[in-house]
Design a protein around this nucleic acid. Sequence first.
DNA 1: CCTAAAATTCTAATATACCGGACATGTATC
DNA 2: GATACATGTCCGGTATATTAGAATTTTAGG
Lengths: 281, 281
Amino acid sequence: MADTAGEPVMRRTRGLDRAFEILEFLRVKRRPMRPNEIASEIGAPRSSVYELVNLLLNHGMLDYEGGDGRVYLGRRLYFLGTAYAEQFDLMRECDRMLLRLSEETRETAQMCVLEGRKYTVAMMREGLRPFRISASIGELVPLPWTASGRLLLSHLSDTQILDLIPPEDFVLPRGIRLEPGEFIAQARKARSDGFFTFNSEIENFTQCFAVPIYQPDGICTATLCLVAPREDGLNNRDRYLKSLLTAASEISEKLGYGRETPGQDLPRERTGGVRAIDTRG
Amino acid sequence: MADTAGEPVMRRTRGLDRAFEILEFLRVKRRPMRPNEIASEIGAPRSSVYELVNLLLNHGMLDYEGGDGRVYLGRRLYFLGTAYAEQFDLMRECDRMLLRLSEETRETAQMCVLEGRKYTVAMMREGLRPFRISASIGELVPLPWTASGRLLLSHLSDTQILDLIPPEDFVLPRGIRLEPGEFIAQARKARSDGFFTFNSEIENFTQCFAVPIYQPDGICTATLCLVAPREDGLNNRDRYLKSLLTAASEISEKLGYGRETPGQDLPRERTGGVRAIDTRG
DNA sequence: CCTAAAATTCTAATATACCGGACATGTATC
DNA sequence: GATACATGTCCGGTATATTAGAATTTTAGG
């Protein structure tokens, strides 16, 4: 429906949207940038970006960094993010557990969640070995690429799973396509086993272990994971799984997730469940 | 002054400003709230707040929480805040050090900074003792109330210090006024001693220990602190101070703060491990 | 049930935020 | 010194975001 002639479809973007676009852009880039550079890379009017950057600086949402007119995410964002994390018992408990796990195993321990239609690492404690394995917190990754993906979706029906995962996400990093049916089968098995482990689809030399943390209603809110060098992971498989399972059950215990509380009508938590998915980059 | 007739000085507030006002308000309140409640408490038009809250929800900057139309800071803020903290070597190193300090001493360890004209706790690791002493990260506190306050300002001249601190902040929590001259003298002594310790102005039964982390230019970027029950703090004074001083000097070492590197503004290599492998569980 | 208050959605006007584009200022390259 | 490009500032017009207030729905009592 491209109208060849006429309609000068003037579209302005709301300041708020643009501002968050800038913040998200800097988060992905992971380095301070100049306003001019930001403007051209996100394809926004320069004058708008300059104005917004100044507003964000005034609010402490951006800070000058690198001393050359470059800006990066500001300290106030850090305080807001901390307040978010403090609010949730789950995150506080996981913080403790990740610490213990990484000390017990010397491997990198993670807490992972469903974010929209993707998987992401929410918390991480790096292992103590010389070559640490690490990932970016908040980076979105296709669910089939990850061990946790099997567990995070295991409470959904087959069709719900297929509706949730974008078809292209079944193509694994090495270019091979995973059959959706196979993925679902793995998810079912993971649910009944109470864990999932495989060698990473992303990095060939690493072994991943994931165990679920369930809410009372059976939804897998999050997973605890260990990421180990392959050899090492295989040698310690049982020990690692035991550590993970113990940690997960202690968290469930602590948060009262352990005992079923079916009586109360749960007020439809949005987090963790399938969120109404809105389209944004 | 009040114009009886006339000028209808219509003032609109920019969406961005109000949006951040909402976020900050929720941060201070530290609990989920309804849009309506937010609107009336911050004195903003209801229709505006409803619209902004919806925008913020779409961006993930707010999340529904408590299942009753109440909203609180969203997960995306957490990811942005994490990205901020990852960017700075100082914060990553402090995270490790706070952990070690809290394990060595079993006391609450903090990293504190100057935020505008106030003191604030930027990072914290709670102690292991049954009655933990803790504080809210990001909460602004008058500088004279804190041990770190002496160190954070010690690079300034007398007049700069007096200009920076709001006069009313010299009134301590118990209502007694601290003479500015006395505060400055303490700051000078702290600078030459390399630490400051006193029993808290805020909480009477606690002893505070603070040591500075200096940039190459001699500015005190941050402090490391221990907060202990009074009795306990006095008994272990030397040991605690030694732990803190060691930790601070290791951080300086690691970040190259130790040797003077004037003039150069190097694009730092990330300290710590080799970040070669990128894998998710 | 009814009534009142609280919470939310809708609507239309208008104050202004966003944007295009001109201008100014480096700072490299030849 | 001329050219090109990157960076930042400024300004006026207009598309639209903000707002007051009305309308609607939900909740709370009694």
